[in-house]
Design a protein around this nucleic acid. Sequence first.
DNA 1: ACCGCCGTAGCGACATACGCAACGATGGTT
DNA 2: AACCATCGTTGCGTATGTCGCTACGGCGGT
Lengths: 256, 256
Amino acid sequence: MSQSLGKALQILTRLGAGPATLDELAAAVGVHKTTVLRLLRTLADEHFVFRDGSHRYHLGARIHELSSRGLDQREVRGIAAPHLTTFNRAHGRTTHLSELAGTEVVYIDKLESHDHVRMASRIGLRAPVHSTAAGKVLVADLPVGELDVLLDALTFAKATPNTITDRAAFRAELTRVRAQGWARDREENEPSINCVGAPVRDASGRAVAAVSVSVPDIVMTYDRLLDLLPALLSVTERISRDCGWRPVEPRKGHPA
Amino acid sequence: MSQSLGKALQILTRLGAGPATLDELAAAVGVHKTTVLRLLRTLADEHFVFRDGSHRYHLGARIHELSSRGLDQREVRGIAAPHLTTFNRAHGRTTHLSELAGTEVVYIDKLESHDHVRMASRIGLRAPVHSTAAGKVLVADLPVGELDVLLDALTFAKATPNTITDRAAFRAELTRVRAQGWARDREENEPSINCVGAPVRDASGRAVAAVSVSVPDIVMTYDRLLDLLPALLSVTERISRDCGWRPVEPRKGHPA
DNA sequence: ACCGCCGTAGCGACATACGCAACGATGGTT
DNA sequence: AACCATCGTTGCGTATGTCGCTACGGCGGT
């Protein structure tokens, strides 16, 4: 663990919450302002931060550039984008594309709802797999060994009264997800927010991303949200096909 | 200049070019792999990078989160976004929103062209003020002292045969920009790319951002690009008004 | 003029970061 | 099974880079 790097990263993270002065950053990070200034100098030299005319430091252009490049490296995002735009245009609900990251999902794209109720999520945020629809579809088809390792690492943190906090119950939920091909989050991750998600698959059939639709209960009930399932399954199928996925053919001689 | 932080930032920048292994990063940064691993560990702990199953490190979720938050902190971006979306929908040309950053502009939003010719620019990239339309409008109205300081710092790097590389010529260009209220870049920044730009002003009348439209010559001639000027001036005026700007009223008793 | 705030420079001490060397884990081949 | 190559990791001693302190300069406001 590199001490000075860790401190610099804390500075960057603090600046994510808003611009700050040298003194504010020194207080936030807990080191002398000379030390902070040295770190800030280095960060500024590489354009990770900049200082305005009022003595405040801000996140700089390099962060945006790297994020933009990093997102471009996530292939599924580029493939999904036009499909999601069309879906969002048609349905107007907050839609996320996410990937699995350890025991969490990370949102790698977001399309805003068309109404005035906005969700506080954003690209780059992470959420636990066990309480999100996206998480469930991303882990449901993991090979047994991988799923066990993941479940071992999961803390099943209770986010709301509805959160699944029991390993056996979560396994049962994943069985259900596998059977129906989509997942739900009924106020399990955030109070008053329901969500449905479906997997995007690649050529190997593996779920490489999830598309999920989130709606506050006051805007749309869970039952109304289910009306979006056909469209959701349709768009994830289209994206999957563009990712090289092909449906498994029914085996001959066996019941469909 | 913090050595270990500098190295870590080099790692992040390298990963912007694509995923890399520990050995590749050690070679790129020029230090022992143990050192790189320590830095990567710290970066990974804070989610700035992650490692995939094939030994490769990638830029992580925190970069995207910080970028997203940092862009939200740029107020003019939020104000301009709906206007630019409408403008882009109507005209379908690559459109940038940029801010001044020292002797450079930094692109803080980008709307893609509707055709298949895409521009290599991206959010977070910087470009010199003297060879870009956006740069010209951002510095044209600077107070004299500020402009002098900026010009002193400018190297007038020659990007193309058309680049203005002479201080006096650039000053003359800025005089013209002030008079007409918009600026051009006739293959001054990149060969075969023309650009027009106009300022977004805040309540104080100061140019706080620029909207620019860039088009490759093969797609649209400079003269055709000029057809977009009325719409460009109109959208920048609308954004400016939303930023609190109000047109200066003609003085009474003087010619209009 | 004085004051407050911010940024900066120089210094010595020492803690942290460094590279080296060795080893463990993994996967592939024979 | 053994062997090999690659990657990641650990432990060590050392010296370099980082640290906080102190003092000072610059700037803006009164």
